[in-house]
Design a protein around this nucleic acid. Structure first.
Length: 785
RNA sequence: GGAGGCAUAGUCUAAUGGUAGGACGACACCCUUACACGGUGUAGGUCUGGGUUCGAUUCCCUGUGCCUCCACCA
């Protein structure tokens, strides 16, 4: 074995070895019980950062553990490449827009970019040692996925779960598409709060003066004494002149602005509520691309119109006050554009009536950590809209739908012909309502969540209804981060429940976020992204995974270089223990009766039990911690205590105990540090053990025959005395192997006395009272240099 | 505004109704035939304020700070 563990070389060659031997390959014919994992398909939107490594490693610890426990592990990988994020990336890289390119050309460009990034992601996750079976790779834009996604839509349609309706829709004027509630985020923006005189007594304050032409009513709070006299009055809107009525509604906050609000179609959600509640007229003044429709503005954008409006109102004498404010506005999370509300035909999945059953499903799921379940329930309780699943974009999975040109009736695709692209394909049947053969295709695409919510069924090669790979579905485990409980986890429960009446998984493993070294989330815009490749180059994959294994499941963890350094040192130490073993191999293995051998065996058996229990509860961090601790204890104490026998005349017993215990340690650590443990296994154990890889070897058993309370207690005393002698030598600035003439111990320790002598280079031990107490053992010792 | 989580030495973390463990850093000593990328040892810590208790860092309440999700945002 080399003097140093060359992690770069070893990582390279082992990765190839695992690939060739299909160590992580899933065998559908295997008779073993299947453990299936619903891996999150990362969005192709840029690079992989250390946060990804953090959460994917945590799922990998579990996958590797289950594999060693004898499960046939189904661990696929997927790429989410059909969404808006991917589109935006492609637009940026090619310096173009989807609109300019047209659908067909643009899709070709997306596919090219996707290929490139797939290779990058695969390389990164591969080098970190994520043990997925790459032959199970899926993407959310593939033909198979398109078929499943469209099939899902058709099945939901048959169930009466989807409907099409013209409703106010959350809209991104930059992308020109409808958005779901999930795609919004808050942003603090500067704005002007303008007080406008409509009439002598009707004065309103607004941040959206450009919406004056869309004003359809004015509201005051019925309990607002100052303003309630206005109710019933009619006033003319400045400049645009339409007459609107003042109405009373409790949703008005009398303390805000002037206490008088204008309702426009639509400035915000309250406007929509009023519009629906009072049957107000509709005045659409903003285009799909965020331009003003009223002739008055001559087609300028919203922001310019706002500026112009303020100036015009001022010069016409309508403005009473103007205040600079900063307020939160809803923006599209991907492009940061302030959202608008437009009335559009959209497809919806009806689920507001399912809240109870969805909550019930969530309660059946085993959440790790359990408090994450609350987030799921809160989300469902707060839902106000059905799920809008249509997007006015170019790249994605098309709706398998055409419309009758004559009567507008939707024509659904034939399920046997999926996937279809209605822009290219023909419906192949006439309108069921009027019998016309003329049709127009649906040009919208499906929301990406409408597809990614099917990953368990995609993995199980679903063909509709109950037709899927049993054994794979329902899946054993959904690992994911906590921020998308309300998106991905929730929508998956919805869809899988609707299609199969089943919960898609047994357990959910919710990881936290990897944060930067100051505990801040990593964002490209903040410039605090940490690249895995930099860390891998410096410390290696095992060391990086060590960092990911430190924090408890569900906790966020800040990235600390020193934690990776600790992992690196750990790996180095493991390597050196292996070298020691190699240099001092036992001639034959045999069960030892030495106290210290029985002592370490007993402790190792306890450790195995503890690690196994923790792993079974998905507490990988606890398992790792106990194994780490034991490893250091083993190397710094036990190994030092038995050297005198290894170099002396009890070599076989000592060396075979060292080797046996170390194999247990290696196996317990294999899920966390796959490279170093595999390398050592190959060098020292493979021939004897027979398994081609440590990752396919059997998880250690807590051997009852090694439980030995008596030896453990005696060994602890020996350990306590040795520690005391070590301290004594240290205080005298003596080397730890310096000679001591005589040690007096107050208690007989049977054959443990030899071990003290050997470990501490003591010439003679006698029984008697000493002046140095040994911890809380009640023993005292005396030392003569 | 609502919900959830977290708060422990200089830094990062573990555990616990009774003496708080480790890592990095600091300091001291030891180049002991696996390892100086090592070993041995020393110093250093439970966010504020209440409550329950014989006893709280741990349980409860409050405040503060950080992170996440949601709502509001005329």
């Amino acid at each position: 074995m080399d003097e140093r563990f060359n992690f770069k070389e070893v990582e390279q060659s082992l990765a190839e070895f695992w690939e060739e031997e299909r160590v992580y390959g899933f065998d559908p014919k295997s008779k073993k019980e299947v453990f299936s994992i619903d891996t999150p398909p990362p969005t192709i939107s840029g690079s992989v950062h250390i946060g990804h490594v953090f959460s994917y490693s945590q799922a990998d610890f579990i996958a590797r553990y289950k594999r060693m426990r004898g499960f046939s592990v189904f661990y696929p990988f997927g790429f989410d490449n059909n969404g808006l994020p991917t589109e935006l990336l492609v637009e940026k890289l090619n310096k173009t827009t989807a609109e300019r390119e047209g659908r067909e050309k643009f899709i070709a460009k997306v596919e090219a970019v996707t290929k490139e990034y797939e290779a990058l992601y695969r390389r990164t996750f591969g080098s970190v040692g994520i043990s997925v079976d790459w032959t199970l790779l899926y993407t959310t834009i593939s033909k198979d996925t398109q078929r499943i996604s469209q099939l899902s839509f058709l099945e939901l349609n048959r169930m009466g779960r989807v409907y099409r309706k013209e409703t106010p829709t959350i809209w991104c004027p930059k992308e020109g598409t409808a958005l779901s509630q999930m795609e919004l985020k808050d942003k603090m923006l500067k704005s002007k709060f303008v007080t406008i005189r409509f009439s002598d007594d009707v004065v309103i304050a607004t941040t959206r003066p450009e919406l004056l032409p869309a004003c359809v009513a004015i509201f005051v709070n019925p309990d607002d004494k100052k303003n309630s006299t206005l109710v019933g009055k009619k006033v003319k809107v400045p400049i645009f002149g339409q007459e609107v009525k003042v109405m009373a509604d409790a949703r008005v906050d009398p303390t805000k602005g002037t206490g008088v609000v204008m309702c426009c179609t639509f400035g915000d959600l309250t406007d929509i509520e009023w519009y629906k509640a009072y049957g107000l007229p509709l005045r659409i003044e903003i285009s799909e691309k965020g331009k003003m429709l009223n002739k008055y503005f001559g087609g300028i954008g919203i922001k310019d119109a706002r500026q112009k409006m303020i100036e015009d109102l001022k010069s016409a004498g309508y403005v009473l006050a103007e205040k600079e404010i900063e307020h939160n506005v809803n923006v599209h999370e991907r492009c940061g554009t302030e959202i608008e509300f437009l009335v559009k035909m959209q497809w919806y999945v009806r689920y507001l009536d399912m809240k109870e059953v969805l909550i019930e499903q969530g309660r059946k799921l085993r959440w790790h950590p359990d408090f994450m379940a609350v987030r799921y329930e809160n989300w469902i309780k707060g839902l106000q809209w059905d799920w809008s699943i249509s997007r006015q974009r170019y790249y994605g999975i098309p709706f398998p739908v055409w419309y009758c040109k004559k009567c507008g009736e939707p024509i659904m695709a034939d399920e046997k012909r999926l996937p279809v692209n209605p822009l290219v394909d023909k419906p192949g049947s006439k309108c069921a309502k009027c019998g016309s053969l003329d049709y127009v295709p649906e040009t919208d695409i499906l929301d990406t969540w409408a597809t990614s919510s099917l990953t368990p069924l995609i993995n199980a090669k679903w063909k509709g209804g109950d037709d899927y790979m049993h054994g794979i579905y329902p899946m054993s485990l959904r690992p994911q981060a906590h921020d998308i409980i309300s998106f991905w986890l929730f929508t998956t429960v919805v869809k899988c429940y609707l299609h199969t009446k089943k919960l898609p998984w047994k357990d959910a493993l919710i990881s936290g976020h990897g944060l930067d070294s100051h505990g801040k989330p990593m964002h490209k815009s903040e410039g605090n992204i940490i690249e895995p490749s930099v860390v891998l180059e410096k410390y290696g994959a095992d060391a990086l995974r060590h960092w990911a294994s430190l924090s408890r499941l569900g906790d966020d963890a800040s990235f600390q270089d020193k934690d990776v350094l600790t992992g690196f040192k750990f790996v180095n130490k493991m390597w050196n223990v292996a070298r020691f073993i190699e240099q001092n191999k036992a001639a034959g293995s045999r069960e030892s009766r030495n106290v210290m051998d029985r002592w370490i065996r007993a402790k190792a058996a306890k450790l195995v039990k503890a690690c196994t229990e923790r792993f079974d509860e998905y507490d990988y961090a606890g398992a790792k911690r106990s194994a780490d601790e034991f490893f250091w204890f083993f190397s710094n104490n036990y190994l030092e205590f038995v050297k005198y026998r290894i170099y002396g005349n009890d070599k076989d017993a000592a060396a075979s105990t060292v080797m046996g215990v170390y194999l247990d340690i290696l196996k317990l650590l294999a899920p966390f540090m796959p490279y170093i443990t595999e390398k050592i296994y190959q060098e020292l154990y493979r021939k004897k053990e027979g398994s081609i890889s440590i990752h396919l070897s059997e998880w250690p058993k807590a051997d009852a025959k090694h439980a030995d309370g008596k030896a453990e207690a005696l060994g602890d005393k020996v350990y306590g005395i040795i520690s005391q002698v070590r301290q004594w030598k240290h205080e005298r600035k003596a080397a730890l192997n310096s000679e001591i003439k005589e040690l007096v111990i107050s208690e007989k320790l049977e054959d443990g006395e030899d071990d003290i002598k050997g470990a501490m280079n003591i010439k003679k031990i006698s029984i008697g009272k000493g002046e140095i107490p040994v911890g809380d053992t009640g023993i005292s010792i005396g030392i003569q240099a």
